[in-house]
């Protein structure tokens, strides 16, 4: 398995488009933090938590990175080379999922330092407000963000394998997850179980809203969605012709 992960990492890091997407994801973190700082708030604490609560744009971009890592191989037919070297498709899909998750984790790890840096600059140039978060709070937001990003990257990867097309995969992610699932999340019965609700609960763990799952169930839901979709991708991929 280590060999496949190494190969997938070489493939990912050798594509300019992946680095561009990572760059956009980091810009998303900066924009998300700025938005949190300037949005209306009642207290410094609320302003700080808004700043820490990640970015929907970055969540979308890490999901697209997952889609891209899988689907771009089909568009270029590079998947033929991949499967003639590693015919065990389960290992290939899992290795891709590990690399997608690892990239998302790195972006997630950056989320809190970026938010803190953006806030420091914002306050430094005379922006209103002040930073009000303990290390524990920042840590909580940090690993919530990491889990949300990693989960969505793996979900994107599974969608990329299933769709075998970057365009279709991105369309499914955008409309299926960010629009339709988001809208369904407003239905109370479904909202506690939707993948976007789980992501919201992970990105903003200290502000619990009754229609969203709590942090623990949100972690479980994220693992469940990512796990089921990855399993489905493996099962389908092992039965399909290339």
């Amino acid at each position: 398995m280590g060999r496949q992960v190494a190969a997938e990492w070489i493939k990912a890091r050798s594509l300019r488009s992946i680095w561009m997407l990572i760059g956009i994801a980091i810009i998303g973190l900066i924009v998300g933090a700025l938005t949190g700082l300037i949005n209306p708030h009642d207290s410094a604490r609320e302003q700080t938590l808004n700043t820490l609560s990640g970015s929907s744009l970055t969540l979308l971009v890490v999901t697209v990175i997952g889609v891209f890592l899988a689907a771009s191989e089909y568009g270029s037919k590079a998947i033929v080379s991949t499967y003639t070297v590693t015919p065990d498709r389960r290992r290939v899909v899992l290795a891709k999922a590990i690399v997608a998750a690892a990239i998302a984790v790195v972006v997630g790890v950056l989320s809190v330092p970026v938010a803190r840096l953006v806030a420091a600059v914002f306050f430094g140039v005379g922006g209103a407000g002040e930073w009000d978060a303990s290390f524990g709070t920042a840590f909580h937001y940090g690993y919530g963000t990491i889990l949300a990003f990693a989960g969505f990257a793996v979900i994107g990867l599974a969608i990329g394998v299933l769709s075998r097309s970057v365009a279709i995969g991105v369309a499914i992610v955008f409309f299926g997850i960010f629009i339709i699932d988001g809208l369904l999340g407003s239905v109370s019965v479904y909202s506690e179980y939707s993948v976007t609700s789980a992501a919201t609960a992970l990105l903003d763990p200290d502000v619990h809203q009754s229609r969203f799952p709590r942090f623990g169930p949100a972690v479980a839901l994220m693992f469940l969605y990512a796990g089921i979709l990855t399993w489905l991708a493996v099962v389908v991929e092992r039965r399909r012709d290339v």
């Binding site: 050798s14 594509l15 771009s72 590079a78």
Partner: peptide
């Protein structure tokens, strides 16, 4: 069967 955006060296390195 290669990705157009990857160099020859990186393509073979991955293999």
């Amino acid at each position: 069967s290669f990705h157009d955006g990857r160099s020859a060296h990186a393509s073979l390195q991955a293999t």
